[in-house]
Design a protein around this nucleic acid. Structure first.
Lengths: 350, 350
DNA sequence: CTGAAAGCGCTAACAG
DNA sequence: CTGTTAGCGCTTTCAG
């Protein structure tokens, strides 16, 4: 009968396992990793020795030797927002399937935390998935020079050697403009996002372009800047409507803003969609739940997260080349822009 | 003039820095870490050499030598749910302040992913914050035996040596019962959670107790099991109301369920709160946004996350003892249980 | 205050 | 198929 399994705080090393199995350290290692042929008997003995001792591979030692950390860094602005939360969930699942773990940093939109996270991650992960809110080359260039694969996601980031996975924000926003004109809008408000966010810039630009194409005059377009949040939307729309009471159609850069805006507008006595049309961007799950349900541009969050994770893992494991991929978005028309008749939710791909 | 800074994929080691600074490796190390007194001149030379070469400390080597990983594992069921998302955000902030990074795993409520995550985390982190949905000692006991600090959070988990941070679920649910009776409920429905979740058990038990204390007969209490999600709530309430149309008050174990339930009930033609009173649990941000706003039991998510992270970091860094801490919850009465007059949102601490 | 050297646990040559 | 051995880069004795 074998002695009792190793307990307590003294770590069990490969040496212990080898000794108990009566083989050399390298045979024990190879039996465990399978990187070299080992006789069935030895494998069996090593495996049971490891199990009896409760052996746990020391990842730090393996990393030091091989240079592989089996970890990816994930830098996002706000996991509380279901748009990013869902992507985090997808990425975590894919990483886990490949045996990678995810080192998460939530920056809360601050450049300091983003920069700090990047610096901290350098020597701890094999690659980084970056949802940047302050895309400065100076923080990312060094990573690339160090040979660390980086894939930017959601927020566009132009840099040589950087992978990218984005939505077609401009096309989506143009479609929003056209849809709001069709729905009966005549004086327009834009709830823009913070200036550092490329998604905010692209969506605002696309929306203006779209209105212009439909012949709307610049004097009938008003804008306010607001945080990418429910509260940001409330405040933004309050300012917008206070300064320009004639506004009868609003485009918000995110659903969170749009929903905050809807609630604020209703509190101000507006009726949606009759007094005010509202269109968001993202299609978070809550958008179809609130009343009135929110017309929005659906991003393929799942698809983008999957592509970004796959691209990064390929860059890490087989030296895959970074590429830039743009995902189409689709207009989901709901009650917030549907005057008169109710009905189903038609979806238009762009 | 010094040669150009090191670029490219060849990693810069401490040896390189020491050579360039003209000091020994140990002096370079001490200059960087400050663990031993070093002359001002040497410090200066080492620091500038490190900066010029773009030196990045190799964390794996440091970990191998010191045994410190400066990482905590965070295992949660669903980051998409703002209740957990918010806690993840808080924990990440606190960890980052102490120089720790967070290895996140999203289990999506599956025991396999939880077990796998725990196994993968053992040799990669200094401690684990566990939001378990399948609290089995067999997965956690080994971690404790290995000397890895573990703090359970949200879902109660009884095990020697395990830290714990929980809400007082029973007291909260009792308060919900009393509140629903006061609000005019007479036939009650419970939207229970999955049986493996201790929060679900505690809340259901507390609610039944509370009803009993108020003299409600067992025959007037009906229950259905549902996932902790919006869709789970929809389905659960549909079954509940189909089988027991007399139900006029519902207690859901989570706000997500409650909100799904409200929407489903309204789709079924019920008016809330007049036909049906609804009370949730959590107080996620959306609960105050929907119409009718949701009466619920507010958990101190921020406080719990802070306490859990602090406790874990103390256990890791100064050998702090694990303890079990229960946070009070408070009833937030809103429109979903307020028949007749509208008004503000009174809050009752328990 | 500084340097030389040991060694953390593992993998991957390099011999058998 | 197996064993011996040389480090991966760092921190930390141990000697000056």
């Amino acid at each position: 009968m074998p002695p009792p399994a190793q307990q307590g705080h003294v770590p069990v090393t490969l040496k212990d396992v080898a000794a108990r199995a009566g083989v050399s350290i390298s045979t024990a290692s190879n039996a465990l990793t399978g990187s070299r042929a080992v006789s069935a008997v030895s494998v069996e003995r090593v495996l049971s020795a490891a199990a009896e001792l409760g052996y746990q591979k020391n990842e730090a030692a393996r990393t030091l030797r091989t240079g592989l950390r089996n970890a990816i860094g994930l830098v996002v602005p706000d996991v509380t927002n279901p748009f990013w939360g869902g992507m985090v969930s997808t990425i975590d699942r894919i990483a886990a399937e490949s045996g990678f773990h995810v080192a998460l940093t939530n920056t809360e939109f601050t450049p300091q935390r983003e920069t700090a996270a990047l610096a901290r991650l350098v020597s701890r992960v094999d690659g980084i998935l970056l949802f940047s809110t302050h895309p400065t080359g100076s923080a990312v260039r060094p990573l690339l020079d160090l040979g660390i694969p980086v894939v930017a996601c959601d927020e566009a980031f132009e840099l040589d050697g950087l992978g990218g996975v984005y939505s077609d924000n401009e096309a989506g926003a143009r479609a929003a403009a056209s849809h709001l004109v069709d729905a009966g809008g005549s004086v327009f408000g834009i709830l823009e996002g913070p200036a550092t966010l490329t998604t905010a810039q692209q969506r605002a630009r696309g929306f203006r372009q779209g209105l212009q194409e439909r012949g709307v005059l610049t004097t009938d377009i008003h804008a306010a800047t607001a945080e990418y949040s429910f509260e940001g939307g409330r405040q933004g729309i309050r300012r917008l409507l206070a300064e320009n009471p004639a506004i009868d159609a609003i485009f918000a850069c995110t659903d969170n803003q749009a929903i905050g805006g809807i609630f604020e507008a209703m509190d101000m006595g507006r009726t949606i969609p009759d007094d005010l049309l509202v269109c968001g961007f993202d299609d978070i799950s809550w958008s179809s739940r609130i009343a009135p349900s929110l017309t929005t541009l659906r991003q393929d969050a799942e698809g983008m997260a999957t592509r970004a994770a796959d691209m990064l893992l390929e860059m890490i494991t087989v030296g895959g080349e970074p590429s830039v991929q743009v995902f189409p978005v689709e207009l989901v028309a709901r009650d917030s822009t549907r005057r008169g008749a109710g009905g189903e939710s038609p979806v238009t791909s762009l």
